[in-house]
Deep mutational scan, measured.
Amino acid sequence: MPVRRGHVAPQNTFLDTIIRKFEGQSRKFIIANARVENCAVIYCNDGFCELCGYSRAEVMQRPCTCDFLHGPRTQRRAAAQIAQALLGAEERKVEIAFYRKDGSCFLCLVDVVPVKNEDGAVIMFILNFEVVMEKDMVGSPAHDTNHRGPPTSWLAPGRAKTFRLKLPALLALTARESSVRSGGAGGAGAPGAVVVDVDLTPAAPSSESLALDEVTAMDNHVAGLGPAEERRALVGPGSPPRSAPGQLPSPRAHSLNPDASGSSCSLARTRSRESCASVRRASSADDIEAMRAGVLPPPPRHASTGAMHPLRSGLLNSTSDSDLVRYRTISKIPQITLNFVDLKGDPFLASPTSDREIIAPKIKERTHNVTEKVTQVLSLGADVLPEYKLQAPRIHRWTILHYSPFKAVWDWLILLLVIYTAVFTPYSAAFLLKETEEGPPATECGYACQPLAVVDLIVDIMFIVDILINFRTTYVNANEEVVSHPGRIAVHYFKGWFLIDMVAAIPFDLLI
């Protein structure tokens, strides 16, 4: 008679799926529990143990900040960024110097990925580790590398530091407007667009060049630039800015003055950032001319202004700041037409079709709590990747769950009947059967004279019903998954307890 339990259901295979997918890609990662103190490590794979030199037993239950890997060259700011990422709910990448158990130093890129439950609360953290440099290539500990984003994938490793954006290309926007319009339909740009040429040739750093990471940081200074100062900065030398009595002219307006920039070969870094931020506020060169004239017309309804409409929906549905990093990277690809469009465009503009998908598509409701890094690593669709929660398995109709209350009560009843059979069957065979043979035949009273025979008949009927119930009862397979398919249940029961239950259900007393 089957006594099969499996009270692990309803099970959740999400954690096993993450481990299996990460292991298949030869990654070095740990999984931490966000619900406990210090976000203790609950799993670390073999790749991480080989990377740091510690065994799994030495890593388990330690804080996922990996303070046991810190050393003299470990930056405090990087460690603080990892700790801050564990307090938030967004994906974050941090470069930090770690030390192995043998004392060797290596520069590592740590990717902190939160995993949320159905309520939107962070319950786990996945920390992925990628070695960037070994100890002989690690720089000085005073050099802070965590304020910069990861290198873009479309640049060669040897040319990542030679990417320079020439400031004269930004200063000569109005001069290039006529050349853009003359391109017409034969050019790649839309009317009114501004073409910015980027020099990728390796050259020595000069005062006129600005690194790509500095251009990325310009967006942080746009908020500090007032509207009046932006307007004066875009007017140009024809209309000098008016300053109040006793007030000095704005240095932001002076930063885009061609006369002032041409007199000296070098520009201050602050002026460069502010000038680029001011130019980015204009949607095209037409807006710059309109600002000089004193009238700013409404933005025209053409394809170039609607190019950012799908980007707005993608940004609203993005799951991490990696989408913004990807957008900034692609927006700086050289030799393309940049349409400086305000994100607050007309909502009635139709979304044009684009061959290049900048932001990841909208994630469906079932995966809105899973970050983009987890979705990318697992390579699963929205119909396959579940949320991290207890999910009731989908069972067929008329199927009994093996952990249901009805099955528990039924098993206790069958257990009592088995005990009765084990006690009274030998007793009936030894004593009652002998008395029946010696006594007179009682054929007239039937079952009324033999109450134990009636009980034995009921017990046999219950055993037959138990066999039928076992054909529709779920079970737990070797992978700790609840199986509810009727065919698989029948095959599993035939290979197991079916023969024993059938022999126990045969009414031998009635056959004798």
Rank of each mutant, 00 (worst) to 15 (best):
G24L: 08
T367S: 11
E357S: 12
Y54W: 07
A193I: 01
F129A: 01
T152M: 13
S304Y: 11
V122M: 09
L15T: 06
P227E: 06
D199Q: 05
S272V: 05
D16G: 13
N33E: 10
M291H: 15
S318V: 08
F14Y: 07
K364G: 14
K93C: 13
V122G: 06
K362N: 07
V180P: 06
L385E: 03
N369E: 06
S263G: 11
I123T: 13
S284Q: 05
D342W: 01
A293S: 15
R301Y: 09
K116V: 13
A142L: 08
G158A: 14
A203R: 14
M133S: 12
R76H: 15
L338N: 11
P151L: 15
P249S: 04
L212A: 12
V325H: 08
S284G: 11
G88R: 14
D102W: 01
P72T: 04
Y99G: 01
G238C: 15
T375I: 09
A290G: 07
G120N: 15
P299F: 03
P310I: 09
C108D: 01
N220A: 12
M308T: 06
P334F: 01
G381D: 09
Q75S: 14
V138G: 13
D197R: 01
M308S: 12
S278Q: 15
G236R: 09
V195D: 05
E289P: 08
E58K: 01
R100G: 01
G306I: 12
F348R: 14
V196I: 06
S207G: 12
W154K: 15
E357P: 12
R56V: 01
V194I: 05
P157I: 09
V377S: 04
R92P: 01
C108S: 08
V341Y: 04
F348E: 07
R269Y: 13
H368V: 10
G345I: 04
A193W: 01
P299Y: 05
V94L: 01
L127M: 11
H143C: 15
V122E: 06
E58L: 02
T319I: 11
G47A: 11
V3P: 07
S209R: 04
T145Q: 11
P63V: 03
R77H: 13
G53P: 01
V295L: 15
R27V: 07
K344Q: 14
A290W: 15
R242F: 14
T353R: 14
V279A: 14
P258N: 11
